[in-house]
Computed example of a mutant assay.
Amino acid sequence: MKKTLFISILSLGLGTAASAATVFTSQEEYSLGSGPSINNSALSGLIESPSSNTSPGTGTIMMWVTLDSLPSSLSSLISVETKKSNGGHSGSLNGWGVMVGTDGRLQICQQTVNASNSVTSASSKGTTSASIGAGEAFHIAISTAGGRNSGNFTLYINGEEVLTASGFGLNGNAFSELILGSSGLSGTVSGLTVDDAVLDAGSIKSILEQTRPVPEPATVSLGLVGLAALMMRRRRS
Rank of each mutant, 00 (worst) to 15 (best):
V98Y: 05
T66W: 02
D68C: 06
S143Y: 15
G95F: 03
I108R: 13
V23L: 12
V65W: 12
T120Q: 07
G59L: 06
S37T: 14
V119Y: 09
L170T: 03
V189D: 09
T219W: 11
G126Q: 07
S44E: 06
G97L: 10
M63W: 02
L46V: 15
T128G: 02
T128F: 04
M99C: 03
A141V: 00
D195K: 09
G133C: 05
S237H: 12
T164I: 03
A130I: 03
R236F: 10
E48G: 00
V65E: 06
S182Q: 09
S176D: 15
V98K: 11
S19L: 01
V162I: 03
G88Q: 05
S8Q: 14
S79R: 06
A134F: 05
T4H: 09
L180N: 13
G135C: 10
A130D: 15
N171W: 14
E48Q: 05
P50G: 04
P215L: 11
F153L: 06
L74E: 10
S166L: 03
T60E: 08
G223R: 09
N152W: 00
I132H: 02
N86L: 08
I179R: 13
V162H: 04
G135Y: 11
G172E: 07
T128V: 09
S129L: 08
D68V: 09
R236H: 07
P217Y: 07
V214Y: 13
G126R: 12
G126C: 06
V119M: 01
E28W: 04
A141G: 06
G146W: 10
A20E: 14
I179F: 11
L93H: 14
S116D: 14
P71K: 00
T25W: 02
N117K: 08
Q210W: 03
G33F: 02
M99E: 02
S72P: 00
G88K: 01
S183K: 05
S166M: 05
P217T: 05
S221P: 00
T25Q: 13
L192Y: 11
